[in-house]
Design a protein around this nucleic acid. Structure first.
Lengths: 210, 210
DNA sequence: GCAGTGCTGTACCCGTGGTGCAGTTTTGAA
DNA sequence: TTCAAAACTGCACCACGGGTACAGCACTGC
């Protein structure tokens, strides 16, 4: 779950603030990111900041909303490309995972860490609505992936007994966990390799024995 | 990676500070945890705090060290129990995973979130040594699990082609990712179920077809 | 010509992390 | 019992960052 392919051409100062905040938060965390540095980067004053956002927490909410929307577009694009390449639900999903993996390999540097995670680990600094935003997003992915897996399972009876909802969750789990591991040991390849491993798992569950 | 089974009977004030900090950080994050609240809980003054720790960051370092040590003891205990129950490397590892899953099911509430993760997402608030501590710990687990998998693979040739180091990483990935997902959607069961799913993956890779 | 949008400037409050240091109590070994 | 080190207390003080309050200005589009 990361920044990926953002045009952001005719950005307003509000947008610029969000972008600056995103970069800073991903790089050094929310608490270490001061309003001061954001406004100097954008070139406005403190009053300008508080004109756009009631407080720092509201800015994070806006940031999260924008991020989740972009992420949804990203995933949807991958899904679309995958299903044009193959009609079969299993093959399409495996292609989707491959495309996801490739995108992750291409990520800059040690990759942007997940904003969602950063938010969840700051809980009390924000209000409930931010947490709910993150939760809804993750539950949304569960729903979407679960639907795909049900489709797949209808055609390819699973070779081992797994809960398809858990399997759906596992993709977000592997992604978020992969980001953490990548960030911690400073090896950007880990994330993509973990997605690749997840792909092999999915394949081994559904793909018929050759 | 969590708090589990801590005696901490004759705690010094320093230990009490660490414990209070651990609870607070896990519950609401590092930034939202003030020195003030820790010292009032323990019953000492601000001067007392700075007698024990140069600054907040040093406290986190001490906390992390204590946590990693306890975690190591926990895992070692599970490994030991598992290998007394079965000599076979694969079966022992699967038992270990089952025990791990059971422990995770038993975790209080929505479970303690991983301190390591909390630290990684605050990067710039701490010094490099804290990051290295976390990285060394995760690389240590990779080494240990990798050794086990090599042992297993020697007896049970893998049925699908997976990188054993990636497979080792996947356990920490699933754990950390599982904690995040659990925390986000407020469902404590997710973590254990994800470990269970990982177990099925390991089993399906190595276990001979029935 | 006028209202809204998007700001600036100034002044000010408070919580929190952190410093410095002198003095006091507690503890444990000789 | 003594004495030194460990474990604090108390107080004064600073800087930074988030946040408030509010008056005023500049630009845009109708």
């Amino acid at each position: 779950m990361t920044t990926f392919l953002k045009p952001r051409s005719v950005a307003t100062n509000r947008d610029k603030l969000l972008t600056a905040a995103e970069l800073a938060i991903v790089e050094k965390g929310f608490a270490a990111t001061s309003i001061e540095e954001l406004i100097t980067e954008v070139g406005i004053t403190k009053s300008g900041f508080f004109y756009h956002f009631r407080d720092k927490s509201e800015m994070v909410k806006a940031l999260l909303e924008r991020h989740l929307a972009e992420e949804a577009v990203w995933f949807e694009g991958l899904f679309a490309r995958a299903s044009t390449l193959d009609d079969d639900p299993l093959h399409a999903f495996l292609i989707f995972l491959r495309l996801l993996q490739e995108d992750m390999e291409r990520l800059t540097d040690v990759h942007p860490g997940c904003i969602v995670t950063a938010c969840v680990f700051q809980e009390r600094l924000f209000d409930r609505s931010i947490h709910e935003l993150a939760a809804d997003s993750l539950l949304g992915w569960r729903r979407q992936f679960h639907a795909k897996f049900k489709e797949i399972a209808a055609v390819y009876p699973p070779r081992i007994d797994v809960d398809l909802e858990d399997l759906s969750d596992m993709l977000t789990v592997v992604t978020d966990g992969g980001i953490i591991l990548s960030k911690t040991i400073r090896d950007k390849g880990v994330l993509a390799r973990q997605v690749g491993l997840y792909r092999k798992f999915v394949k081994s569950i559904f793909a018929p024995r050759h």
